[in-house]
Amino acid sequence: MEAGQDPRGALVRPYAVTRGRTEPQRDIALEAILLCTGRGQQEARFAGRDKHVIASICDGRAQSLAEIAAYTRLPLGVARVLVADMVAEGLLALHEVMGFEDADGRMEVLERVLSGLRRL
């Protein structure tokens, strides 16, 4: 994975990447799936190095925030700020996680997870 070979490695001063911002534009769950949009495919390369890398990680592959943070070796909070920006900019599409407000929807996902595990 190209992102894993970042010469800055884990030594990068984390919030320099986000220009000091530590507050994401929206809360994104660890397991939330992101996918690069068509706009992301076209425009992410102009959005800076980190965003470009993130866009290519999610290009045609459903990847969670946790996976993006792991592959980029960015601390979770930093990855979350960047990803939230990219969602706002239309470069990434954010998918829904299994919630806990709607019991019926939750039950449906649980049943699907159960049959998925049985099929493994």
């Binding site: 769950a29 660890l30 397991e31 939330a32 799936i33 996918l35 949009t37 068509g38 706009r39 992301g40 495919q41 076209q42 459903a62 969670s64 969602v87 239309g90 599409a93 954010l94 998918h95 829904e96 996680v97 299994m98 996902v109 997870v113």
Partner: peptide, 21 residues
């Protein structure tokens, strides 16, 4: 949600649900 350029190929966007343990 922004569906801008969701699909260059005209496929409808599929919602992907994720869960965790």
């Amino acid at each position: 949600m922004d569906s801008a350029g969701y699909s260059r190929f005209g496929r409808p966007p599929t919602a992907i649900t994720s869960a965790k343990i």
